[in-house]
């Protein structure tokens, strides 16, 4: 399969100012090797979309630590004190989004929708600057779809065709992010010959590149 690439090829795909989806939930299902390669590449001014801020020196926290991130879009940043500190020092812009809204905005982009209508966040700070739309007498917030230039996918068990399923709770944001970016790169936890078609979660057309070789960890 042509989808398998090594770390050096991956680095050539990276550019300053990219908007990148990073899968994982508190680093469970986070593509740690791909994140290390982003750090090695030294690209700057990134916008990172991830459920959370990771931990200090773990998950997306590594890119934040190295000053590569201009903006973080996440639902929770409490586990990484660096994020709050950099935000207060005005070195990092943080946009906090309710978790269900965040994942649904990503899903909407992948599905070709302009946005979603959600009751979550009504009458809170989240509503600020957003349109309220009434449907059948009920209020909803209009939340825009959220795509990216690249998605970094972790926690996946890949097959040689590029199909993916996910290990246990490592699934989280990964399947939605794999539909919502120009370039989708997967760091598998394992590569097998073929996944039973009934068990495929992310079908191979969504996947552009897989880190590693076909012979890896078989």
């Amino acid at each position: 399969m042509h989808k398998f690439i090594n770390g050096e090829v991956f680095k050539t795909l990276l550019k300053d100012g990219m908007k990148i989806h990073v899968g994982g939930f508190l680093t469970n299902g986070s593509p740690e090797t791909l994140i290390d390669l982003v750090v090695e590449s030294g690209v700057k001014n990134l916008t990172i979309i991830c459920n959370d801020g990771g931990y200090e020196g773990n998950g997306v926290g590594k890119m934040i630590n190295h000053g590569q991130v201009k903006k973080l879009i996440a639902s929770h940043i409490g586990t990484n004190p660096d994020v709050g500190r950099l935000m207060n020092e005005e070195k990092l812009i943080v946009e906090l989004v309710p978790q269900g809204t965040l994942v649904e905005r990503i899903r909407a982009y992948g599905a070709g929708l302009g946005g979603i209508l959600t009751p979550t966040g009504l009458n809170t700070l989240v509503q600020e600057g957003k349109e309220v739309i009434q449907v059948k007498g009920k209020d909803y917030l209009l939340e825009e779809a959220l795509g990216a230039d690249m998605a970094l996918i972790g926690g996946a068990i890949a097959d040689e065709y590029g199909n993916l399923k996910y290990r246990e709770t490592m699934r989280n944001f990964n399947p939605m992010m794999a539909t919502a970016a120009e370039i989708v790169v997967v760091e598998p936890v394992k590569v097998i010959e073929v996944i039973d078609p009934e068990n495929v979660i992310t079908p191979h057309p969504f996947v552009d590149y897989i880190l590693g070789g076909e012979q890896d960890e078989r």
Binding site: L26, G100, E104, E168, T169, M176
Partner: peptide, 29 residues
């Protein structure tokens, strides 16, 4: 590799299911 929403190690009960975040918030919302 099972963790709970606090990132702590956990397990899954017999008859349980792993779901993605969109499905999780379909349950919730």
């Amino acid at each position: 590799s099972i963790v709970n929403a606090g990132g702590m190690k956990a397990s899954i009960c017999k008859g349980g299911a792993f779901i993605d975040s969109a499905t999780s918030f379909t349950f919730i919302r």
